Computed example of a mutant assay.
Amino acid sequence: MIDEIDAALRTIIVDEALAGAGVELSFDAPTKEWASRRSGPTICAYLYDIREDVRRRETGFVNEYRDGRTVARHRPPRYFRLSYLVAAWTQRPEDEHGLLSRLLQQMINYQSIPIERLGPTLRDLGLPVTMTVALPPSEDRSFADVWSALGGELKPSVDVVICAPLPVTRTQVVGPPVRTPVLRTGDIREPARAEVVRAPRADRRREDSA
């Protein structure tokens, strides 16, 4: 799932927002050592946090149908928030600001990633993959803390948060449907003498009426 989100972000950033700019996109951690090796304009989209969106967790089961009957049940998908720190590296701060401006201009048009940008796993689920851009961080973290943990200098950046469903692969197979109800009577201690009474079937009633 994460690799499909990375691919979708690459398409939105490189092919749409910065088309023709000759800018490289990297998902590496923007440490000082990494920054010192940059030889050209680069956008870094660093995945710095992965958390489940517990507000969207559902209970119960989802039925899978085939030929009009239930064949299996599975848990609903779980939703995870992927937080990316997006920053630009160039020779001049003005150029970095220009790249970030183009990114913002394009990415604020999206409230979710278009289905044609998604990989097969997310596309087959048919569920929205939402995206928020440059919202304030949560109370338990700040972007300055992220930069400090990376050992780098604080730079202007855009926080991109994508909430994507992750399917639960554990499935419970359902047995075949009951087509003929059976009622057993008698002493349960003597199963051999128990009488079996079958409910009349629809086709048997039709034969009798004929």
Score class of each variant (00 low, 15 high):
4 E>G: 07
8 A>E: 02
9 L>E: 01
13 I>N: 00
14 V>M: 09
15 D>I: 04
15 D>H: 12
18 L>T: 05
19 A>S: 10
20 G>I: 06
21 A>P: 02
26 S>G: 02
26 S>D: 09
26 S>R: 08
28 D>K: 14
29 A>F: 05
29 A>L: 07
30 P>T: 08
32 K>W: 07
33 E>V: 12
36 S>K: 15
39 S>P: 04
40 G>R: 15
40 G>D: 14
42 T>S: 08
43 I>S: 01
44 C>N: 15
45 A>E: 03
48 Y>H: 13
50 I>P: 00
50 I>S: 08
51 R>C: 09
53 D>W: 01
53 D>P: 00
54 V>C: 03
55 R>W: 04
56 R>D: 05
56 R>A: 10
58 E>A: 13
58 E>M: 10
60 G>K: 07
60 G>W: 02
62 V>A: 06
62 V>H: 02
62 V>M: 07
63 N>H: 14
63 N>Y: 14
68 G>V: 08
68 G>S: 07
69 R>Q: 10
69 R>K: 13
71 V>A: 02
73 R>T: 07
74 H>M: 10
74 H>D: 06
76 P>V: 06
77 P>N: 04
79 Y>S: 00
80 F>H: 05
84 Y>I: 04
86 V>R: 01
87 A>V: 06
88 A>G: 05
91 Q>P: 05
92 R>D: 12
92 R>K: 15
92 R>Y: 11
94 E>Y: 04
95 D>N: 11
95 D>E: 15
97 H>W: 05
97 H>G: 05
97 H>A: 11
99 L>H: 00
100 L>V: 09
101 S>W: 07
101 S>G: 15
102 R>L: 06
103 L>A: 00
105 Q>T: 12
109 N>F: 11
111 Q>I: 09
114 P>T: 06
116 E>R: 14
117 R>W: 10
120 P>G: 06
120 P>V: 11
122 L>N: 00
123 R>G: 02
125 L>T: 04
127 L>Q: 08
128 P>N: 06
132 T>H: 03
134 A>Q: 10
139 E>K: 11
140 D>H: 08
141 R>M: 12
142 S>C: 03
143 F>Y: 11
146 V>Q: 01
146 V>L: 08
146 V>C: 00
146 V>E: 02
147 W>H: 07
147 W>P: 02
149 A>W: 08
150 L>K: 05
153 E>H: 13
153 E>K: 15
154 L>M: 15
154 L>R: 11
155 K>Y: 09
157 S>A: 15
157 S>P: 01
158 V>P: 00
162 I>K: 02
163 C>P: 02
163 C>D: 13
164 A>I: 01
164 A>R: 00
165 P>E: 00
169 T>N: 14
170 R>H: 13
171 T>Y: 01
172 Q>V: 12
173 V>R: 14
174 V>W: 09
181 P>G: 05
183 L>F: 13
184 R>Y: 12
186 G>A: 06
189 R>L: 14
189 R>I: 08
189 R>K: 11
190 E>A: 12
190 E>N: 12
194 A>K: 11
194 A>C: 10
197 V>T: 14
197 V>N: 13
198 R>H: 10
198 R>E: 11
200 P>V: 10
203 D>H: 11
207 E>G: 09
208 D>M: 14
210 A>F: 13
